[in-house]
Design a protein around this nucleic acid. Structure first.
Lengths: 226, 226
DNA sequence: GCACACTTTGACGGAACCCTGACGCTGCCG
DNA sequence: CGGCAGCGTCAGGGTTCCGTCAAAGTGTGC
């Protein structure tokens, strides 16, 4: 579960945030001043910090620096100040986002989700991979794995696979497929498709003559299914 | 250098941003519609994308999805819409930040710095030393060790090795390789690659004619594998 | 101005890849 | 039942791409 540390000296705001976050099954800690915030952060290791800049005991930017001294936890700053200098100072001190009061709860939550999401450990070096159970496709690394072994694809095969995977689950018309892989003037050379789909299936499908992932939609196009 | 992709259909805004960014020594690409944006992102691998939502050819959220299909590059959304729903939709589609027009340039740049900063590999966390069993590469010290002995590399050889190792496991396109090592105008001099890959293999591979770590992907590029 | 190391360039054999045409199969319709 | 259209399969030939080598160019330090 995601743990949030809410820091604000206004009990109303803290209360509202805590209720909203708990309702969405976040785990919430709250602090009313900077010293408590730093202590709680160290003790509880939150996944994200929501920090009001107007604290009674210390400057908000100092809290950010205190946190950044030892952690890269996402910090989402709340502030009543609209001044550009304030924002720049907070962001350059290490904050991840800056929301001015009054704020919409929906927006705040969306920004919080974004902050948490990007802090998640990336697969490998930060790549999105598609897994079918039989093989995996790593689009950024241009890598296909099948039972632990790398599958070698030619440029055309890869390009075709790429277009299909990017439209995973959706039907891709043969004209679109041809034009994206071979170029705008190749919209009718459907035999290319037949040849290369066969190669992809031979290299990736467990039973190439009964494909489970590269589906033919007769007369229309092809579809990639996990 | 940090590379930024600016996407906006308003030439004024693009111009203003490009000037501001270049003055701060960012490298800037610009696109005025979604299709161009996606193509440029794939071709140039920017470190951060500044994306206006109101594009002429496609919905901005679709551009975000198109990018998120294969990359985690930070996306900073610009928009004239203040509606909370718009923000939530963009952020949940995978955007990292959302700035409403009109925006302060200082604030935008600060948010951009924040986005780039947190995308950087963690300090001291990233493995500076890569070990293949046959040889080790120390990126920080710029040293290569093979069976206890230092391997002497020329500047170009090192530069090439560095790019490959930084993308360990991933395929690096020959154009990208050429442009990163020799400069933006050398994107087609593939014979350089052939010569220098051969030298790297001769110096580092146990059996240079059957490379295990510097893999050729014909027609696409090269890949470094531990 | 010479020696040395590095980069660039050109040429060539061989490997990998892409296109192409032919054929068989299936399902549909006349 | 026969013809037709769409799809899958296969193999050969032309073309592109890669590894290798050698030699010419470039720059730097002595």
């Amino acid at each position: 579960m995601t743990r949030v540390l809410v820091v604000d000296d206004d009990p109303q705001i803290v209360r509202a945030l805590v209720i909203n976050l708990k309702a969405r099954t976040y785990e919430v800690d709250a602090a009313h001043d900077g010293a408590t915030a730093l202590r709680l952060a160290a003790a509880r290791h939150p996944d994200v910090v929501v920090l009001d800049l107007g604290l009674p005991d210390m400057d908000g930017v100092e809290v950010i620096r205190g946190l950044r001294g030892w952690t890269r936890v996402p910090i989402l700053v709340l502030s009543a100040r609209h001044s550009s200098d304030e924002k720049v100072a907070a962001l350059d001190a290490g904050a991840d986002d800056y929301v001015t009061k009054p704020f919409g709860v929906d927006e705040l939550l969306a920004r919080l989700r974004a902050a948490v999401r990007r802090a998640e450990p990336a697969h490998g070096e930060g790549d999105v991979i598609v897994d079918t159970g039989e093989f995996t496709v790593d689009l950024a690394a241009k890598k296909v794995d099948r039972r632990g072994k790398d599958v070698r694809l030619t440029p055309t095969e890869w390009h075709l696979l790429e277009v299909l995977v990017r439209n995973s689950g959706r039907l891709v018309g043969q004209k679109q497929l041809l034009q994206e892989v071979w170029g705008p003037s190749y919209g009718t050379e459907t035999n290319y498709l037949r040849v290369y789909m066969a190669q992809l299936r031979r290299k990736l499908e467990a039973d190439p003559s009964h494909p489970k992932h590269f589906i033919t939609e007769p007369g229309m196009g092809y579809r990639f299914e996990k």
